[in-house]
Design a protein around this nucleic acid. Structure first.
Lengths: 339, 339
DNA sequence: GTTAGCACTCACTGACGCAGAGTGCTAAAA
DNA sequence: TTTTAGCACTCTGCGTCAGTGAGTGCTAAC
């Protein structure tokens, strides 16, 4: 594999990323600045096509990179440069305000989509040690109780729970005191397990009071434990790209975004990997994202990976710019969460 | 204005709603069952066109209803029938689970979009008397405090607030005790006003402790007061309608949905009106919704209007079916909130 | 008031041709 | 051996053109 051929491939991919049109031999000959004739370029192109790095959509069109072409481009042909000072500065200021995890996640995905003009997606942080801090049970009406659970990370979960019987305020206070005494400082997962055991024991001993208290706590703890959620922003940016622009295609994509399930599944697979990951076209393994690329990276708090964030865009995205931006956003989000 | 002409108009609108194609005299002649020739129908059509109730897109096309045509159809030509038992039953069961206002709102908008195949939108309930019930201030880290406010409606608001100085847990407890004593049972709006006054007075007397406590409370109370929010579901349904199907058009619409501001503004205007409101085409006054219709109604808790809900779809929507569904959804939501 | 007849208009479709872009191949030049 | 010029060829895209079908408006007869 020729040095020059690689140079041509690089020029071709860059050109195609720029204007989205198949690139012909004449254009490419000018682009590279090597002062070669179009005919020569054609020969090289034919080689690249044999190698499966480019294709032409039809006989008399220019060439377009294949997935393998993009892959080679991204792996070996690109030198990553840090994002522009301006971009970093504007990101940094927007992360300035201290607030809760949820808002930070939302900010991050908005920033990602804003700065890349793609769709930004951020997973909620998953704290390995999510610690029970305090529970509060409040009477709301005849048969409804408001349960509030506060974890050590400052997350607040609340649920309204319908009950079979009426609880007096003092009964609820007693119950919450009991729960707080028992569980404060323990891992949420642990708490859930122990609550289930308690519930079993209480059933056995027919301790109505206990049953109810444990059942109430159970519900809100369950809510706190399943923290699988993500934010997606800037979906509409994807409508601007001609290659995705069939209405049907976009609808499927948006429906998937709304469901979130598939997206979460994909992100989940990235959490194990180190550093920035790039899935080009069908590499992601999801038919939905066939002509999309996904750039993700993990973010960490206290040196532990807690989540994934990234962007979704057409395969024809400006990797050179996008990848460093995703990387730096992850760092900034991590810093903001660490506070 | 002829009785028969109205009959024709009705048939025409119904037909157009069904297949979205301009309706010709031949088709209409068959549709009405009056056994008249196409020529006669043409005469009537010409009259309707003079009255501005229908137009033909071009010389040799059939007729399409104008906004005025739809308006007449909706106001005088339609008899509202209750929604099908099946629809109501499926709605009712989905509202069955008791939970907090936010989830109910979300459910409602999902149901609306699901059952009508349009975009569903629901405003958060606005309680006129949103009463301060309890505040909790918890230390989170060096200079961050978690503030939790619970209102009488069982809504929980929490914010993480960055502070200039360190607070000991007991200081925070003292502050929250003070705030609870002062404000429990009072209207949130009132509380906010009084907090501002307190803050002023505290500044005058240089009471640092007070200043900080009031400032903390202030933030979370502010968050609780501005309850302007809404849920929009099923946006992608709108992509299925040919008449809105230019990508650019849809993008604008979706961007507006994401912004929410304009949508909230429109819904706000509906809150004063009684019963179901229908805005056809440009009647809404928003260029964005030019070829969309908006069907809204208010929902009430304890005989007080607290919010608005409805659907957004193309002008060519099945009003006969949609309007009763919006109506019944509002009732069901109200019932679910009342529990 | 209703209808038949007729001329007319307009969108849509498919055929045709043509220009433009780009290719592959071959043979000559470097 | 590599590069280039030349040439035939193949597509797409665009505009033109005629034919068809759907539908209209008008007029005159029923």
């Amino acid at each position: 594999m020729n040095e020059r051929a690689l140079h041509f491939l690089k020029a071709l991919v860059e050109r195609y990323i720029r204007d989205g049109q198949p690139v012909g031999s004449r254009t490419l000959a000018k682009d590279t600045g090597l002062d070669l004739s179009p005919a020569t370029v054609r020969n090289v192109m034919a080689d690249l096509e044999d190698l499966g790095l480019v294709v032409s959509p039809h006989t008399s069109a220019g060439r377009v990179p294949t997935v393998a072409g993009y892959r080679l481009f991204v792996n070996s042909l690109l030198t990553w440069t840090p994002p522009s000072e301006d971009d970093v500065a504007s990101l940094r200021t927007r992360f300035g305000v201290k607030c809760d995890a949820k808002s930070l996640i939302e900010t991050a995905s908005n920033l990602l989509s804003g700065v890349t003009h793609l769709a930004g997606v951020v997973m909620m942080p998953r704290h390995e040690h999510n610690v029970f801090r305090q529970i509060e049970l409040l009477p709301l009406s005849e048969k409804r109780v408001l349960a509030i659970l506060i974890t050590s990370e400052g997350e607040v979960h609340n649920r309204i729970i319908g009950t079979d019987r009426y609880f007096t305020p003092s009964q609820l206070e007693q119950a919450s005191n009991y729960l707080n005494q028992m569980f404060t400082g323990q891992d949420i997962g642990e708490v859930r397990k122990r609550l289930l055991e308690d519930l079993k024991r209480a059933y056995a001993s027919m301790d109505q009071q206990m049953i109810q208290a444990a059942a109430l706590a159970q519900e809100v703890v369950a809510a706190a434990e399943q923290r699988d959620d993500c934010f997606i922003a800037g979906q509409t940016n994807l409508m601007e790209f001609g290659e995705l622009a069939s209405m049907e295609r976009i609808k499927q994509l948006f429906d998937a975004f709304n469901q979130k399930r598939e997206i979460l599944h994909i992100l989940d697979r990235c959490i194990a990997a180190e550093g920035v990951q790039i899935f080009i076209g069908r590499e992601s393994g999801y038919a939905l994202l066939d002509d999309c690329s996904l750039v993700t990276t993990t973010y960490r708090v206290d040196d532990r990976v807690v989540g994934v964030l990234g962007v979704i865009g057409p395969t024809r995205m400006d990797y050179q710019r996008v990848v460093p931006l995703v990387d730096v956003t992850a760092r900034l989000l991590a810093a903001a969460l660490r506070q």
